[in-house]
Design a protein around this nucleic acid. Structure first.
Length: 294
DNA sequence: GCAGGGGAGTTCCCCTGTTT
DNA sequence: AAACAGGGGAACTCCCCTGC
């Protein structure tokens, strides 16, 4: 086939695929969902290939749809860029970064203003997830991940060590008289559901006995456990590097040690090699690595 | 467990603007 | 004038969520 497919349906598909929603695509294109649905169907009919699976109340890209979307998105980006140049608008370069929620909230976002101050034409689009990133299928340039540094097929930069320590509010430490590991008995341990084993790792390393490492409230994210700790509702097990500002401001205190270092849980920045062709991405990476040294 | 509400996508009918 | 493309509105289906 050497002719272009119908471009309006292609545009509708690009929006629906990118937003994973007919309704959101309709909002973006200022048409009704019915119009987008028909446009996508007409493109599928033209191509002779289903691009979406219709699930109850949602659409899911087929593998062919994923590949097609990834390919045409590059060209839509090119059209947007060319239009910006033609109309004299300042070019905004976008760097798409994936991180864990707590890393984003406690470490990355507080520092991002310094990046934007020096890179006014670069926009960092930050998304959060605990799931592994698939650079071939997802529109992500780089991801901050915990691991042992062994990710086949991508470039890897070591960021910061992951040192686990117990943290609580100053008031709780005072009232509960927390001075040594054994004082944790009878205290509420706060957990993140995605890092449920952290208390066990730490209690074993600290030589604590008779304390159930899995007892206590469990939160969907360390960010929520952090809020509970601020409120004095218990003791959290935390990655110290993410909470240095809270420790400095004494919103949280570390009642006792020892810190636990686990080599396989170090923060790394991972990205496909081809992203280094993007100057904005290179600048972000350089800035990120510099931040870890300060 | 069940009924009702509501969200998301699809289908159908009709209208409007453009092309031939 | 007829054919066609594109889109709106309403009705429909499906099914998740919520309250009882």
């Amino acid at each position: 086939m050497d002719r272009l497919p119908p471009l309006n349906p292609l545009r509708a598909f690009e929006a629906a695929g990118r937003l994973r929603s007919i309704r959101k695509a309709a909002d973006e294109l200022s048409v009704t969902p019915g119009a987008v649905s028909r446009q996508v169907q007409s493109l599928e009919s033209h191509l002779g290939t289903p691009l979406f699976r219709r699930e109850p109340r949602e659409i899911v890209l087929t593998p062919e749809g994923e590949q097609y979307l990834a390919a045409i998105t590059l060209h839509f980006d090119g059209i947007r860029e060319a239009t910006r140049k033609l109309t004299g608008q300042t070019t905004i370069e976008v760097v798409r970064i994936r991180a864990y929620t707590t890393f984003a909230v406690k470490w990355l976002i507080p520092r991002l203003s310094s990046f934007h101050a020096d890179n006014r034409t670069t926009e960092v689009r930050l998304t959060t997830s605990v799931e592994a990133v698939d650079f071939d299928r997802e529109n992500v340039d780089g991801a901050i991940r915990l691991g042992d540094g062994n990710w086949p097929g991508v470039e890897v930069d070591r960021l910061i060590a992951n040192e686990l320590v117990p943290l609580c509010s100053p008031a709780l430490r005072r009232h509960a008289g927390l001075k040594k590991v054994g004082d944790l008995a009878g205290q509420t341990l706060l957990h993140s559901l995605v890092r449920l084993d952290d208390w066990r790792y730490w209690l074993e390393a600290a030589g604590a006995e008779g304390i159930d490492p899995y007892a206590g409230p469990k939160y969907a994210s360390s960010t929520l456990a952090y809020q509970a700790a601020l409120e004095g509702q218990g003791v959290m097990i935390a990655q110290k590097a993410l909470f240095s500002e809270d420790l400095r401001a004494r919103r949280l205190v570390q009642p006792f040690g020892p810190p636990l270092n686990r080599g396989e849980f170090t923060y790394y920045f991972i990205y496909p090699r081809n992203r280094m062709r993007n100057p904005a991405f290179r600048r972000f990476r350089e800035w990120l690595l510099a931040q870890t040294r300060t």
